[in-house]
């Protein structure tokens, strides 16, 4: 023999809203804190957008040191001497020579680097955006030999 109980619809609704608040709090906590995101400047952006902003910081705003610290993972795989524009006070100008090409997390930029008193060089940068933190974790630079 089962015991029958009564509950008002309003009470049930209030109860479900309270449960919803608990769930909301839990979900926000789980998504915000637990995965230990690295809240870098590249989050919420597509890889292409990230690289575009990275280049703007260096070549338009002249903030090489900021770009280096904010956009590049401290353990990134790249040769610093191949990227002289990331040195503080560098006066490099860059002219993009074609569209920025993006494939998944990889972005390729072909551009001409110029500095007063030095011959311009054409370079091809392959930049990889790392997971979970929105920072560059690999950069490779190839110097084009000028052949067509």
């Amino acid at each position: 023999m089962h015991n029958k109980h009564l509950i008002s619809e309003r009470r049930l609704s209030i109860l479900s809203i309270l449960v919803a608040f608990l769930f909301l709090g839990n979900i926000c906590y789980q998504l915000h804190v637990v995965p230990e995101w690295k809240w870098g400047p590249a989050i919420h952006k597509t890889p292409k957008h990230t690289v575009s902003d990275f280049r703007s910081e260096i070549f338009e705003r002249g903030k090489s040191i900021y770009a280096l610290a904010a956009y590049i993972d401290p353990n990134a795989d790249y040769e610093p001497e191949a990227f002289p524009e990331l040195v503080h006070g560098s006066q490099y100008r860059s002219t993009q020579l074609g569209p920025m090409v993006s494939d998944g997390c990889n972005v390729v930029v072909v551009h001409r680097l110029e500095q007063e008193g030095a011959a311009p060089i054409t370079v091809i940068d392959i930049i990889h955006i790392g997971q979970r933190g929105g920072r560059i974790d690999r950069m490779t630079r190839y110097i084009a030999d000028g052949r067509r």
Partner: peptide, 16 residues
């Protein structure tokens, strides 16, 4: 500020 970052930098096909 968002609640969590939206991942567009996962595996290549996911990112695409």
């Amino acid at each position: 500020p968002s609640i969590f970052p939206h991942l567009v930098r996962n595996a290549p096909l996911s990112s695409q």
